[in-house]
Structure formats: C-alpha cells, structure tokens
Design a protein around this nucleic acid. Sequence first.
DNA 1: ATAAAAAATAAACACTGTTTAGTTTATTTC
DNA 2: GAAATAAACTAAACAGTGTTTATTTTTTAT
Lengths: 211, 211
Amino acid sequence: MGVAERKERHREDLKNEILQAAKSLFTEKGFEATSIRAIAEKIEYSPATIYLYYKDKNEIVHALHRDGFRLLVSHFEVLNTVSHPFERLKAMGRAYIQFAVQNPDVYKLLFIMEEPLKHVANCFEEWDEGDRAFDILRKTIIECQAEGYFKKMDNTLLAFTIWSTMHGLCTLKSSGHLGHVGVARANQWNLDELTAMAYETFVAMLERMKT
Amino acid sequence: MGVAERKERHREDLKNEILQAAKSLFTEKGFEATSIRAIAEKIEYSPATIYLYYKDKNEIVHALHRDGFRLLVSHFEVLNTVSHPFERLKAMGRAYIQFAVQNPDVYKLLFIMEEPLKHVANCFEEWDEGDRAFDILRKTIIECQAEGYFKKMDNTLLAFTIWSTMHGLCTLKSSGHLGHVGVARANQWNLDELTAMAYETFVAMLERMKT
DNA sequence: ATAAAAAATAAACACTGTTTAGTTTATTTC
DNA sequence: GAAATAAACTAAACAGTGTTTATTTTTTAT
C-alpha cells in the first residue's frame, strides 16, 4: 500500500515539523511565552490542527523531553574515551555544566519542570532515558571505587549527592540566584568563572575521598 | 490626624489581607494555578481592587518573596545556640532541607522562580535578606576553618558549593526527579530517607575535610 | 462524476492578567 | 444638614491563553 505509506510518512513529517517549531520557539522565547497559536503560525497551520497530531501541549513538551534526554546521553557517551574513571567523572561534571549552560531550556525541560515527568509516570515505560543517564554516573563511581576512591560509600547515594551538587550549581547559576548574592558581585568573578571555581572546589573534595 | 491614621491602617490591613489570601492560595493550589480573580474572591473584593494595592501580580509575588526570606533567616537564627561550628553547619543543612520540605511553595518562591529576583534587581536595595542568609553560611564555614576544617579553601566558593548541594537535593527531591530514577524505587528507601541519606553522604565528605 | 473519508479550519468556550470608565461610598466644606 | 470633593470600589472590556466543536475544504475510492 504505497498510498497509505506516503500518507503515514506525511503525518510523521508534520508531527515532527510541529515538534521542531515548538523546540525553536521554546528556546527562543522560553516555555511560558510560547503558545499553541505561535507554533501553529510558524508551521503555517491553524491552531486546531496541532491537536490532530498531539493530544495537548503537555504531549509536545513530553516529546521534547524525550529528545532532550537523548541529547544529554549522547553528550555523555563521548566521555567513554576517557579511560581513567576519576578523570572521566570530572569530565562528566564539566560536560553536565556545559550542557546546562548551552541548552538552558532543554535543561529546564529535563530537570526542573514537573509536567513532563508526570507524563512519564502515567506511561508504563520506566523512564529509560533518565535511568540510563543516572547509570552512567553510577558505573563511573563504581569504577572509581575499584581505584581506591569513595571506599565504603554507597554508590547510589554518592551518585545522588554528586548529581545534586551539579544540579544545584547549574540551576542557581542560570536562575540568577547566584548572581544576586552580594559577595559574588563584590569580587571580580563573573558567573561562569564562579560556577567553574565552585565546581573545582567540589572536585577537590571528591579528590580527597581516596583510600 | 486620627482619621488619616485609621485609613492608612485600614489600607495596610487590606494590603496584608490580599497577601495572606495569595499566600494561602499559592500554598494550596500552587503558583500557576492561582489567579488574581481567585485572590479577589477569597477576600470578597473585585479583581480590580487588587490593583489598587499592588501594581501587578509580580508585586504580590515579590512581597511574599520578602516574607519567605525572613522566615528562612528566622529558621536559621535558632541555630546560633549550637556552639561548635561544624555541628552548627550540619544542623544548618538539616534545617535547610526541613524548610524546603515543609514549605515547598515558599522555597520555590525563594530559590527557583526568577520573577521575584528580577524585582529585586530593579529596586536599588541590595537584596539584604539573601545576603544575610548567605553570610550566615559563610561565617559558619570561617569558624569551621578556625577549627581545622576546610583549610586553604575559599570560604565563598565553599559556601556556594554547599548551598548548591543542598539546593540540588531539595529541588530534585520535591520536583519528583529523584523519585523517578529506577534505582531509587528499586530499593526500599522512601524519598525522605533517600534525601536524608544523601545528605549524610555529603556530610561524611565534609567531615573528611579536616586538617 | 459521485460518494466516502480524511484533513484542516473558523469560531466558540472558559479561562488568564490587566486597564478603563463609571459607580458607589466616605469625607470635607459651606 | 446639603452640596462638593475625594477616595474606594467595581463592571465591563481588551488581548491573550489552551482547548473543543461544528463546519468546510481537500483527498481518496468507487
């Protein structure tokens, strides 16, 4: 059935077109400032057409959530080339910050907004993407332990702790809260430097966790 | 002028009534889900009346932001009774988590939302509340350094790092992201336990930073 | 060419924050 | 006490939001 196939392909095309339009508008204007009508206008369809391809706005957000996670995981996969586990761990931290800074809206989608997560909870799928990203961190920690780091510490708990620190650094930086603390403005540091230095401080702490 | 005074007092009363109605609705329904109309209905005035007392919705949010910070600082002031600085530091961490868990909407107001911060930036005031909270942490760190902890580490950078970890723990927990990681559900841990244990893991790291 | 099916839309609904013009209430002046 | 002034309040509207329904246009199959 060549005809049905072509139609199906066209359907998928339009579905993807909606997604790309939404993505570009989200990163351009932010989430709250992007309306269904604006997405419709960008792809030159009527607003109601969007609803033929996506149940509601949350479904669009959820689709971008999945894409975003794939992007993050692919960012981390490059680090497999770093053979020494602790060096890899450090590189992962830097990569995480870099990802958050370069893709603030994607980051918001992945780790701050609650709606896309609710959608995951409703589906029976086990949030593979998130688990995979977390497992990358956990495995690296376990490898570090084989080298004498983090002895007698639970790898899962340490993974949560490290993730929390990274997440805290990224969110406090990009939300502007870090920048509004007086002592931060008083020194000559800019925000990126400050974040990098705080990360190095944390790395220094991790480094002491050997033997 | 007794009359003018009484009127002024009434004005302040209504202004405060609006604030309390907003606060209760915010904590009850969340920020996004509370409208000016809902606030107006709660105090039994017309929506337009709100605008006679507050410039816009952001000004209400900002007023609650200030209140929230005072609440947080008062939470911390109790800890002055803890004489040993490192014990005090540990207690501060627990108090911080407790505050975030018990007042999730206030926490969101203080450390996640960007709008109230913008308002602070527009005013010339130097965000005293935030600076004071941060200074409490910094001073405790400096006292710890006098006891042999965190030698040769910059107290401001360490303060940022610790704050980031606490903020990360609190936000990942209450946003639900922590709970959606497979390994977290696999173990018997509940979210509060998990957060507490992750905090203890972090404390264990800090504890090693002596001499 | 005509009937059936699919795709797209115009228009409405129930909301939102906010503004404007008008009404009601309270105070002051005569 | 009655009239003029000032303050407080509100009804109604505006422009926007996500979403739904009924209708029209376009495509496909007979």
